[in-house]
Write a protein that binds this DNA or RNA. Structure first.
Lengths: 256, 256
DNA sequence: ACGGTTTTCCGTACAGTGCACGGCTTGTGT
DNA sequence: ACACAAGCCGTGCACTGTACGGAAAACCGT
């Protein structure tokens, strides 16, 4: 009687128990749970029920893990579904970016330190460049526009996260909370005559974010129609406004 | 013969050798030299020729030192000199912000983590709110405008700094440099038909920064004159557009 | 079926960290 | 002259990232 697979237990793990994939997944969970300060290779290994040094078979350093985790969560941003006007596309994408960064509050801290060169980050960048180029932005204004948008989102959510972290911490007593709230929210009431700022903070941030985004998008839109008062930027001496066809038409054509 | 002071040597230090002031000055120097990753309390103490634990007489934690150092360098931004149109004032201040953050590349990494509640940071914030309020921005648009501007600056310089750090490091070999440069700068040439991006990178960033800033300021300016196409924001039901007099007229009146 | 090679795993060790604790030194008030 | 307090800091502890080298397992050519 031939011994079948069904009676042979799989025993100790056949193929490698660890993998880069498993490691980054655990890293994201670990970062979500402990924050970037509480993240350690020992803790990560423990979460994987592996020895600490085993991780170094798949990764060269802690920084590598962080880079991988960062690009991983950037991948959580969904691809745009259909053809969309550039402004809607950017608004949706960036709102999603913010959502991801709120879900993973360690992200802004990392983007401020590490360059974003992973495949997902590059795909995002490519998407934005494509959308704005399709809208007619070109030359230095194109890079400026993309840079402005992504810088804004990063900066906004970074500030937003530190706000939540300092004010909504259980350790923060009511007094600190009141003082900080007074300091910051007071600004607005000080200059706008409105004092009751109650508890709609979450909605406040949403609104704040959307408003700021609109401000930037307005500024970009203003550069599209030449009748708006923006007489600067003498344009390149380079005559060619011809646009080379992107080498990968699949992902580009559906942009607009 | 009375013993005069001149023959009595000052001997061992009379008053406390350390002080919060001395510590933050050394901390800034240490951070400039070693970066935020290489910053350690032991190193800082060594720079002050003091025992490590002596620092804790003046400070409760490493984070305290970082917060102090952060607010310290924010103080490097000069006060505006005379009355200025709001747009000029903001442009100058934010350009100086960027200069400070380039001089102290660890700043963006910290602002992404810690809330900015020091006196210098608050004074800056106050200045911006005052300038924009004086220009006629009010309500949620006011906070959004200020948030957008500061978020942009932080985000921009953070990205800029990581760029310099990865590409201009001596450890970065020419190959990495070329690959990264190709990836990023390629975006622009890909969509704008311009390929020669040579070496004017520094000027490029300057221009990029100014352009992005102009985009945002345009967006803000568009909200000032109601004839521009921005029919949203139904305004507060609160009737009073009267602005309360700032309690400290000295620093406010000269804004505009 | 078996010896050898490669791949995966990880225990140990080392230099470094932030900081709690408690003792020492020094200047001051009475 | 003495008590007291303020500034100083050596020692120690728990923790970090990771270099090194050995054990175990998986694969492979014969």
């Amino acid at each position: 009687m031939p011994e079948t697979i069904w009676f042979r237990d799989e025993g100790p793990p056949r193929r490698p128990r660890l993998s880069r994939e498993r490691i980054v997944a655990a890293a994201v969970a670990h970062l979500d749970a402990e924050g970037v300060g509480g993240f350690s290779m020992r803790g990560l290994a423990a979460r994987l029920k592996a020895g600490t040094m085993s991780l170094y078979e798949y990764v060269q350093s802690k920084e590598d893990v962080l880079d991988l985790a960062l690009d991983e969560v950037i991948g959580e941003i969904a691809e745009p579904v259909g053809p969309l006007p550039w402004r809607d596309l950017l608004t949706r994408q960036l709102t999603q970016s913010r959502a991801v960064m709120r879900r993973h509050p360690w992200v802004p801290a990392l983007t401020a330190t590490r360059p974003l060169l992973g495949p997902n980050a590059l795909a995002r960048s490519r998407l934005f460049y494509g959308a704005l180029a399709g809208a007619g932005v070109a030359g230095p204004e194109l890079t400026a526009a993309v840079g402005t948008l992504t810088s804004y989102v990063n900066g906004f959510v970074a500030a937003e996260n530190t706000w939540w972290a300092t004010v909504r911490t259980p350790a923060a007593d009511a007094e600190l909370r009141a003082r900080v709230a007074g300091l910051l929210r007071g600004r607005m009431s000080e200059y706008a005559g409105q004092t009751r700022v109650d508890e709609a903070e979450n909605a406040d941030f949403d609104r704040q974010f959307a408003l700021g985004l609109d401000i930037i998008l307005d500024g970009i839109a203003a550069r599209l129609r030449p009748e708006t008062p923006a007489p600067e930027t003498p344009a390149l001496e380079d005559p060619g406004p011809e646009m080379p066809a992107p080498e990968d038409p699949r992902s580009e054509t559906r942009l607009l």
